[in-house]
Design a protein around this nucleic acid. Structure first.
Length: 878
RNA sequence: GGGAGCAUAGCUCAGCUGGUUCAGAGCACCUGCCUUACAAGCAGGGGGUCCUUGGUUCGAAUCCAUGUGCUCCCACCA
């Protein structure tokens, strides 16, 4: 195989992924090892991969691959969600394109279309995840509408119904007129919208006068049942007992009084429309008012409106304003900013609507779920979400679980002719129950509820149902081997916007059915935004196509790019330059590999500098490795990656390899070669979770004859003790190297030209000489003649001199030294101030004082040396 | 209206239980280099009023308070 100077991921990635699948490296079955389990947040079955998925799944894959290499039995369960309202909306739209109207179809005809659509488009997203390198156990792929998972949903419904927690009732719900279904409170997004406040005149019955009310919704006046005034409002005391007429339809309605109305808003008069406003509904109940519903399920006025029948609510608003104006009853229109609810799925403006729905009582079942988070059994990362979670769980509302859709699990309630119902899994069971109510009933008379349950009522079972759906709804069930082994899972990686929709409810269900929290940690990713901080959206066209990115930069490059800038909970501002950085890093790794691969190892003596470099890098490696482990423990994934990035690029390539690299064409000794390969493999292992493809490719080439057929089944390098002194010392070496290189650049000395370096002090840097291109490295006891024309610098307590001959510029040298002297004096002054401060010496901890004293001593000796050197230079200047 | 969070280099962010003249990383930028692994590179370099104002302290980017600006969540007075 040809090994090119540019890393070319395309062919490698497809080949390796196929190889991994063939060998079942991702597969997991229960065994004696500790499990590490992650369930994927199931994407919409008909969805397409976007940047948010890329980030989310990259993080999951990093954690899973790392756990696998820590010797755990790692299991990542993939799957998709049927996403009832989103998918149904797509199918309806698709049918409409084909000229088919959903209303003309029977339920089963529609379901056939929906399944057809699902089979055609479903799972595309999972195929896309493979391009990213996701190491899921694909044999375990689940879909929330799989037969068994659907059964689990029904069992769960029946379970809560029998427990008395599910009830049916008429409530004001959030109605989505486009999806033609109720949606839950959590599915409503409030946005501030510029609208109008209309001031309308309502004539007072029997008087030649009127009162003015303010409303944002003039189209609902026909549903008014009263006008309400605050009893303390002195402006309207004369209105007691009077009636007013609804404009245009001239219907009489009473004037009522309630302190609910605020006197300082609008005119202080509120029109009461119980059918179309949640507050008015409450008010209506309190005052025993009727409910007149004038808006149909598709958002059009119905015949109860008497006028404008069949008009859309917003068209009706415009028309009615004109009609009122014509009638002289429109007093004025003001601009007004109000908060309007939008459907999360269809973006339609939500219509508050009274309807019969199914609800789940949340208060009691939410309590244990709250405790898991409060007492730390479940950690939210970052923990700032704990407060939000607490607030929500303590103020939880009953969950409207019915949806007026077909795509989903149908509610297992069966109605009798008299309107009463029974809840049962099958028609036969329902019939048995129904007979207990009415012994004469015939099975044909039973009919099933038309609605389905909310999608989240199925996905809240996910961490359990993917392993053993049979236990959902049966908390006493023993469970199969899988659920007992893999549940509870370990980490859940998801976005904060579904903390309540999904995460909180999974905790509830997990506790209810398995008696344990479903996961230990919830890592909440940020949202992926563009460079300007805008959300990525189709309409803005600012979202790159993930597959194109992968094709262009390689999956490893894209993964690194996304990870580098994504701390938990913070939004990430995506920019192509990050992905370029990832790609460049791949190339760096590739070229380091090319270098090492090109060497011939021979039985020759190991040079001293190589032995010392190995000693140093070994220490350095273990120090950084410890940091990486720590960062993983704290879920600081991007920092762990950055540690590994710098370890590889700066320490391994820029220093280690450069020191031990033999001259072109020369062989390398076997000891050094082996050590280097060992380092390289350990680095690959650290990098593998982040960059699975390139690390595997190189590892396979380096381990041609190994029994291990994949890097992912090897173990992460173990944490070893290291000599801190060795690491620190090399930091000084680096300092010296940088000084020498800077001098070369300053003096225009070619990197090829050898230099002499004189050291006063006891510092051994012979092994780094190669990085400075030194001809001679000499120790001196005192400042001798030989350094007459030398440029000098200090590193630690040692002095360094580089003779420059006629290239020396004395005044420049002086300037440099004087600048350093000034700085050091300032430094000393600060230190002295501290040490002369009795309160500091008395109050600060002993080690801090001691370190200040050391600084003082060092600075003093440094000043002495600098002054000597300045004097020397001044003397030679004359 | 209620709650939470954030503000540090041009950008994205570290900076943990106050303690080095503490101000740091990556990217970007500037300068010089096509040096037999790598120009997707190498070497060197510049760059910040740690949002404001107070307070606590021997000592504050760090703790407290105020103000300002931004973000998110919850609630919805028509």
């Amino acid at each position: 195989m040809e090994i090119t100077a540019k890393y070319n991921p395309v062919e490698i990635e497809d080949r390796l992924y196929a190889y991994w699948l063939e060998n079942g490296f991702f597969d997991s079955d229960p065994d004696e090892r500790k499990p590490y389990t992650v369930v994927i947040p199931p994407p919409n079955v008909t969805g397409v991969l976007h940047m948010g998925h890329m980030l989310n799944n990259t993080i999951q894959d990093v954690l899973v691959r790392r756990a696998r290499m820590l010797g755990k039995n790692a299991c990542w369960v993939p799957g998709t969600d049927h996403a009832s309202i989103a998918t149904e909306a797509k199918v309806v739209a698709k049918l409409r394109e084909q000229g088919i109207n959903k209303d003309r179809l029977t339920r089963s005809e529609f379901m056939n279309h929906a399944w057809e659509w699902t089979e055609k488009h479903g799972g595309i997203i999972l195929e896309q995840l493979k391009k990213l390198g996701a190491s899921c156990d694909w044999r375990r792929t689940r879909f929330t509408m799989d037969e068994k998972l659907s059964d689990a949903v029904i069992d769960t419904f029946i379970y809560f119904y029998n427990k008395g927690l599910i009830y049916r009732g008429v409530r004001m719900v959030n109605w989505d007129p486009v999806g033609k279904t109720a949606v839950s409170d959590e599915e409503v997004i409030h946005k501030d919208i510029n609208s109008k406040l209309y001031y309308l005149s309502y004539p007072i019955v029997g008087e030649n006068a009127s009162i003015t009310i303010a409303t944002t919704r003039p189209e609902t006046i026909m549903a008014d049942v009263a006008v309400c005034i605050n009893p303390n409002d002195e402006r309207y005391t004369q209105m007691k007992g009077k009636k007013v007429l609804i404009p245009l339809i001239n219907k009489e309605i009473p004037v009522i009084f309630d302190e609910y109305v605020s006197m300082d808003f609008g005119t202080g008069c509120l029109k009461v429309t119980p059918a179309h406003d949640i507050n008015d509904y409450t008010l209506g109940i309190k005052h025993n008012l009727p409910v007149i519903d004038i808006i149909d399920s598709d958002g059009r006025l119905n015949e109860k409106a008497q006028i404008l029948i069949g008009e859309d609510r917003f068209d009706a608003r415009k028309k009615i304003a004109e009609m009122l104006d014509d009638a002289g009853l429109l007093v004025k229109i003001e601009d007004y900013k109000s908060s309007i609810g939008f459907s999360e799925r269809t973006d339609a403006i939500i219509e508050p609507k009274l309807s019969m729905q199914w609800f789940l009582k949340m208060e009691d079942i939410a309590k244990p779920a709250l405790n898991y988070v409060l007492n730390g059994d479940i950690k939210l990362i970052p923990d700032k979400f704990k407060n939000t979670y607490k607030h929500w769980m303590e103020n939880v509302h009953d969950w409207c679980i019915s949806r007026q859709l077909w795509w989903g699990q149908r509610i297992p309630a069966w109605y009798l002719a008299d309107g009463s119902f029974v809840v049962a899994k099958t028609l036969d069971e329902a019939f048995t129950l129904a007979q207990q109510k009415n012994s004469n009933i015939k099975i044909e008379e039973l009919y099933q509820d038309e609605d389905v349950v909310d999608t989240w009522f199925s996905s809240w079972l996910w961490p359990v149902s993917v392993f053993d759906p049979a236990v959902c709804g049966h908390p006493e069930a023993k469970g199969n081997a899988d659920v007992n082994y893999y549940y509870p899972t370990n980490d859940l990686i998801t976005a904060p916007d579904i903390l309540f929709f999904w995460v909180a409810r999974m905790i509830i269900a997990g506790h209810e059915f398995r008696g344990k929290a479903p996961f230990s940690n919830v890592y909440l990713t940020g949202m992926v935004r563009d460079r300007l901080g805008r959300k990525m959206s189709k309409s803005l066209g600012n979202s790159p196509d993930p597959l194109e990115l992968i094709a262009q930069y390689g999956a490893d490059g894209v993964r690194v790019g996304m990870l580098l800038c994504s701390s938990a909970g913070n939004d990430i501002l995506y920019d192509n330059s990050q992905v370029e950085q990832g790609r460049n890093f791949c190339n760096k790794i590739w070229n380091a590999f090319r270098l090492v691969k090109s060497w011939n190892a021979e039985q020759i003596p190991q040079p001293n500098h190589a032995a010392k470099a190995i000693e140093w890098f070994n220490a350095r490696f273990n120090k950084i490795l410890k940091g990486i482990y720590d960062n993983f423990d704290k879920y600081r994934i991007s920092e762990a990656l950055m540690d590994a990035y710098k370890l590889f690029w700066d320490d391994f390539c820029a220093y280690y390899l450069e020191i031990i690299k033999p001259a072109y064409g020369s062989p390398v000794d076997k000891l050094t070669y082996t050590a280097t390969l060992n380092f390289f493999e350990n680095l690959l292992k650290i990098l593998h979770p982040f960059m699975p493809f390139i690390t595997e490719e190189i590892w396979l080439i380096l381990n041609d004859n190994s029994e291990n057929k994949t890097i992912m089944r090897t173990l992460q390098p173990e944490l070893c003790d290291f000599n801190e002194q060795t690491v620190d010392t090399f930091e000084q070496v680096k300092d010296i190297i940088i000084n020498v290189r800077a001098l070369r650049q300053n003096k225009n000395i070619s990197p090829k030209e050898n230099l002499d370096l004189f050291v006063k002090g006891d510092f051994d840097l012979s092994f780094a000489g190669i990085l400075m291109k030194l001809a001679n490295l000499s120790k001196i006891e005192k400042t001798e003649n030989v350094i007459e024309n030398a440029s000098s610098f200090l590193a630690g307590t040692n002095e360094y001199y580089i003779p420059l001959g006629n290239k020396i510029d004395i005044s420049e040298e002086l300037e440099k030294l004087e600048k350093e002297l000034e700085y050091t004096k300032g430094f000393l002054k600060v230190v002295n101030n501290k040490l002369n401060n009795e309160k500091f010496v008395a109050g600060a901890p002993a080690n801090v004082v001691a370190s200040e004293r050391k600084k003082q001593a060092d600075a003093e000796s440094k000043i002495k040396i600098l002054e000597e050197n300045i004097a020397r230079l001044q003397a030679s200047k004359v």
